[in-house]
Design a protein around this nucleic acid. Structure first.
Lengths: 210, 210
DNA sequence: TAGATTGTTAATCGATTAACAATC
DNA sequence: TAGATTGTTAATCGATTAACAATC
């Protein structure tokens, strides 16, 4: 059993990946932990410590080869494999996600979008539109890795539990309520409302302290 | 100068608030740190420690009065005051945000949405639609607390810097690149792409460890 | 070789957890 | 009063930072 990677490191991993992608796109072939740390507002120690947990991908006296480090992190993250996703909830957020083409970059394919009412959902290239009644059958016949929950708050938990019961192992939740799963099911909550509240708190804090 | 509140505590504050709102809506007038901790997947010690940092709002032997605690946290967060916001970028995300009525709950009013091309933006009740050319003038004549950045990645930083230069102190960033500001300007990044990558990493991790 | 910069261990710092007196 | 549960201090744990030998 390998060492557990802390939540803080997991938080930073995609940032390294994003930055490395930027560097390789700009044909920069070499980078130091110091440069990385400055770009991401971390410390150089932290960067080296983080990468060291996965084995260390640099060379003493030289730094890191951007292409090699990028590909190593890509593999660590699991982005080298394709992942199939469906969206449940065809409201504004659900449709925005269905339309966003950027997920393709991470090898994530949005296969279908489900709602109780499908007529209002504008067709999107390559994304099938189904009534949510068809969800059970769909999940039995298709290998889906990720379910994106963009239904209203009240039915978010029930909806997520349903897809989990049908075998989905990863939940990406956009409903304004946090979901928790155990037993081999992972979940990421994008809670915009909480983020907005934190922003207000921090800005309020400034007013008082300055 | 009062004690600095750690990022971890700030992360949890909105969750307390959300849960307390739920309790008061359900007419539950009393709650213990143990019950709170179980609902939010924390420890009771942590809950008490967190609340203690702001002074402690409970009673020994009794617990916390939900209404009183909710209102106390609301005030700590700054949600008792109105905040005016504008959206820059009228793409799918920008429009989804403009249409979302839930922000009103946190006393945040979306006043206007700006884009380089306004004809495609569907009118939303109470949200004015402007060409981005009008941004300077608008910000000079209106007190705006929060700028919501939902433009494409490439121009996110420039756009944010512009509104900061025009006096906005809080940035809520939805572009898939992290923004950092100093000097009394706060920022919250909602980076969906990073969240998705973390989800994939965690689900991948399961496959390997089990 | 001299300079740079990592890998890796050790020291420090801060957050979480534990404990219990206070008190409702 | 007895039981419950907070406020608050102390102990523990884990994450960050510092340091430097290894080595390119």
């Amino acid at each position: 059993m390998k060492k557990q990677i802390s939540e803080n490191v997991i938080q930073r991993l995609p940032k390294y990946y994003r930055y490395l992608k930027e560097l390789t796109e700009n044909k920069i072939s070499r980078v130091s932990s110091k440069t990385i740390s400055e770009a991401l507002h971390l410390t150089a120690s932290q960067v080296r410590q983080d990468l060291y947990q996965f084995g260390g991908f640099g060379q003493q006296g030289y730094g890191y080869d951007t292409e090699y480090l990028k590909n190593s992190i890509k593999e660590i993250l699991g982005l080298d494999k394709e992942h199939n996703a469906i969206i449940i909830g065809g409201g504004r957020i659900g449709q925005a996600l269905a339309n966003y083409t950027g997920f393709y970059q991470e090898n994530v394919l949005i296969k279908a979008i489900f709602d109780i009412e499908t007529t209002h959902i504008k067709g999107v290239e390559g994304v099938e539109v189904y009534n949510v009644d068809f969800l059970d059958e769909y999940l039995k016949n298709n290998k889906i890795d990720i379910a994106i929950i963009s239904v209203q708050k009240e039915i978010a938990e029930k909806t997520a539990q349903k897809v989990v019961d049908l075998g989905v192992k990863a939940i990406w939740n956009f409903a304004p309520t946090d979901l928790y799963f155990g037993g081999g099911v992972v979940c990421e909550n994008i809670n915009m409302s909480e983020s907005l509240i934190r922003l207000i708190y921090k800005s309020r804090d400034l007013e008082k302290d300055d």
